[in-house]
């Protein structure tokens, strides 16, 4: 059984379609990323999957149940990492994690979870006193303390410094390695590229491309750009398969210390996708 199956999902506010017909399948154990500009319908889609919002139309199955009707037994199996919460400011990290653990039938040990997100040193600090990145790690701890099968992360690393982001990525990989299915929405293309098994780009309420980070939007089939220096000038050629060109260059004794082969980055592909959709 798939973790998430969505067909024909629509959400309308007044006469505006926030989500205009999305089909989506996320397999168990997968890290799936939803990309898209602000207002594209990512958060609305995810909030419908989480059971926070009602849908206008479409069929949605999350862990085999309709999130619009699912009860507390279903909620024990999902974890949600909120995007911009600043609740529980006067509680300590351990107090809040232990409190939320108490909602679940088989929670993880609070101290184990605090260690996993790297907050042991802040265990007894009030949440109010944490930095932005530490605060988001508390949100992750609260999202995973119930031992979810499926974890939703909505722009989890906004405001992180580069080192904190790397640590956070390791944490997500650890969770995925334990078999947790992960749905990640993000603005950061490097984040999606580093983490996602599969990703989809949402623009204006629709999915405009879907694939792996390597193949998204025809990226895998795109021509490679080969550059090298010869006779004091930079030469560039676009080819589908650079092998023959390289062999030729080696045979002619060209200076290969300056050789670069590039394909469109995920960012190039993404920008052309959402540009075309507008």
């Amino acid at each position: 059984m798939e973790a998430i199956e969505v067909t024909g999902l629509r959400k309308t506010y007044g006469d505006r379609d926030a989500v205009a017909g999305i089909d989506l399948v996320v397999a168990r154990g997968e890290i799936f990323s939803l990309l898209g500009p602000n207002g594209a319908g990512k958060t609305t889609t995810v909030e419908i999957l989480e059971g926070h919002r009602r849908r206008t139309a479409g069929d949605v199955r999350v862990l085999g149940e309709d999130p619009g009707r699912a009860g507390s037994a279903w909620r024990t199996r999902i974890g949600i990492v909120l995007q911009d919460a600043d609740d529980a400011a006067d509680l300590t990290v351990h107090e809040m994690v232990r409190h939320v653990a108490g909602f679940y039938p088989n929670p993880r040990r609070p101290d184990e979870v605090i260690e996993l997100v790297g907050l042991q040193a802040k265990r007894n600090s009030r949440i109010r006193t944490l930095s932005g990145g530490q605060r988001r790690r508390v949100d992750v701890a609260l999202g995973i303390v119930g031992g979810p099968e499926l974890l939703f992360l909505d722009e989890p690393t906004t405001g992180f410094d580069p080192e904190a982001r790397r640590q956070f990525w390791d944490l997500i990989r650890t969770l995925a390695g334990d078999g947790t299915t992960i749905v990640l929405t993000t603005h950061y293309l490097d984040e999606a590229e580093a983490l996602a098994d599969r990703l989809a780009v949402v623009s204006a309420g629709r999915i405009v491309a879907e694939g792996t980070p390597a193949t998204l939007g025809g990226r895998g089939a795109a021509q490679a750009r080969v550059s090298w220096r010869a006779d004091g000038t930079t030469r560039t050629e676009q080819v589908a398969d650079p092998s023959d060109l390289i062999r030729h260059l080696v045979a002619t004794g060209a200076d290969l210390s300056t050789l670069t082969i590039t394909r469109p980055t995920l960012e190039d592909t993404y920008l052309s996708l959402i540009g075309a959709a507008r």
Binding site: E50, H52, S72, L82, A85, A88, V100, P105, G146
Partner: peptide, 9 residues
């Protein structure tokens, strides 16, 4: 607070 709690059992 409410949003968080609503996402739990």
């Amino acid at each position: 607070t409410l949003k968080r709690l609503r996402g739990t059992p």
